[in-house]
């Protein structure tokens, strides 16, 4: 099993519903976020192009944050999701420094926190992650890459996609449809 997410940059309108849904679902401390919207404007005026995307931890297959963690608090969970065990985390910040996407933050309680794909609280119960289920344009797909019939596998077969900074060698599991 390999969990993955595909996010359609053509459908995203940047409404931030996914951000708020995540904050509510996961009790994210005020002033922090586990997912966020990025707007990239490209081109020469007046021919401008905008790309909107909802970003989060990429649950990398070759995750530098897992490699750099001295205690094993950052680890791969079943299905390849990258999680942090708060009781093992010493808050050294090595993982925060090692993430090319700056997807992690230091929780006010001291340990390091980030997107979990809602693994324990939703996915294991058969639900989609909070961000996926709340998106009003239905621009996100979540599922198992090893299951060729899953939504994610299907949409990645049909559409063109990219990952963020592939040259960093992290092998992200969050894909952006372009």
């Amino acid at each position: 099993m390999r969990y993955a997410m595909a996010i359609d940059t053509k459908k995203c309108v940047g409404c931030s519903d996914c951000v708020v849904a995540c904050q509510t679902e996961n009790n994210v401390p005020i002033g922090y976020c586990r997912d966020w919207i990025v707007e990239v404007t490209d081109g020469t005026y007046p021919q401008l192009e905008i790309e909107l995307r909802s970003e989060r931890c990429n649950h990398c297959e070759n995750a530098p944050c897992v490699r750099c963690c001295p205690t094993g608090a950052s680890h791969y969970e079943d299905g390849g999701a990258v999680l942090v065990t708060p009781d093992k985390c010493i808050g050294c910040g090595a993982c925060i420094t090692s993430c090319p996407y700056d997807a992690r933050y230091s929780h006010p309680d001291g340990y390091v926190d980030k997107c979990t794909f809602c693994l324990d609280n939703r996915v294991k119960k058969g639900e989609d992650p909070a961000c996926v289920s709340v998106c009003p344009t239905k621009c996100m797909y979540f599922g198992d890459l090893d299951d060729l019939n899953s939504d994610v596998s299907q949409v990645l077969k049909k559409r063109k996609w990219k990952t963020l900074i592939p040259e960093a060698g992290t092998k992200p599991h969050v894909y952006y449809l372009i």
Binding site: S16, V19, G31, Y32, C33, W36, I37, V38, E39, V40, T41, D42, G43, T44, Y45, E55, I96, D102, R104, Y105, S106
Partner: peptide, 16 residues
Amino acid sequence: MKEELITSGRMNPYID
């Protein structure tokens, strides 16, 4: 001039 402008909604303390 070709331009690229990136705006992020993220403002995590100590990160951004």
